[in-house]
């Protein structure tokens, strides 16, 4: 009997864990679909969307430019010293641009937005939950998801692709700075290679990724905050802190997983 239970217990735990994950994924999917559908519910919440674009987008410009510039500069350096071994430093522009546009631009932008805006969303919604503000919205017949989540989702779907584009452009200029200005590659070769190697599919792929990442960030972060009160591992302020941490960690992990899945489909 003891042996049998020793065999069954891990299986039970595995089954329970799997069921929990599947249920959670279903809840997140429903949460996303409701939030997305409610963006188009009239009257449109243009004011709130604009405020969120300012918060998620405009206020992230500096940090995105900074990370974009240094990522491009590092790529320029690494790429140059790798390519110089093969005598093909002329391809630096293509290497930097393709890496940024296809992969690093969308992924790093999404991770930066998660850190800057996603954590704030989780904390804000979480605090509203524990201070009964979300209940208050419901009693006023104001749909909390429409009021709180939909504007953030709409704003992220607009802002994150734009921030990604900014990241790419600044990154390419960073690569130019190290490759051409510091290490002496011809600027003409650098930019011509970019022009000849980057095709529209690369840009579209990066754009699709950034849109999906935006949806992932807002859905996960707001979901974690929205259901702070159902957490069993911590209540009140502790619950909010756990929600915020989980929101950032899960978002980042999901961004990387989704990136792999999308890349395998897009290539």
């Amino acid at each position: 009997m003891v042996r049998l239970s020793a065999l069954i217990n891990p299986l039970t735990a595995l089954g329970r864990g799997t069921i929990f994950i599947v249920i959670e994924m279903g809840r997140i999917a429903i949460f996303f679909l409701r939030s997305f559908a409610l963006i188009f519910y009239r009257p449109f919440q243009l004011n709130k969307i604009m405020q969120q674009i300012y918060f998620i987008g405009a206020k992230s410009v500096f940090v995105i430019s900074l990370t974009g510039a240094f990522t491009g500069m590092v790529l320029g350096l690494q790429g140059y010293y790798t390519l110089v071994k093969f005598g093909s430093t002329g391809f630096l522009g293509a290497a930097v641009a393709l890496t940024l546009i296809r992969e690093l631009g969308p992924v790093l932008t999404a991770i930066m937005v998660t850190g800057r805006a996603g954590s704030a969303m989780a904390a804000e919604v979480g605090i509203m939950r524990i201070s009964e503000e979300i209940d208050a919205l419901e009693t006023m017949d104001i749909n909390p998801i429409r009021f709180l989540v939909s504007p953030k989702l709409a704003a992220a779907l607009i802002s994150v692709p734009l921030l990604t584009a900014l990241f790419d452009v600044v990154g390419i200029l960073g690569g130019y700075l190290t490759g051409s200005v510091l290490l002496g590659i011809s600027p003409g070769a650098y930019f011509t290679r970019i022009e000849t190697s980057v095709i529209l599919d690369d840009v579209t792929g990066g754009f699709i990724k950034s849109v999906v990442f935006a949806a992932v960030i807002v859905t996960i972060c707001c979901f974690q905050g929205y259901f702070t009160h159902t957490r069993t591992e911590g209540f009140g302020a502790k619950g909010v802190s756990i929600s915020t941490t989980s929101a950032v960690v899960i978002s980042c992990v999901l961004i990387l997983i989704t990136d792999y899945v999308l890349t395998s489909f897009l290539l």
């Binding site: 804000e124 605090i127 509203m128 201070s131 009964e132 503000e133 209940d135 208050a136």
Partner: peptide
């Protein structure tokens, strides 16, 4: 609400 539930922001 007992705790007022005003919107802090």
């Amino acid at each position: 609400f007992q705790g007022t539930a005003l919107f802090d922001s």
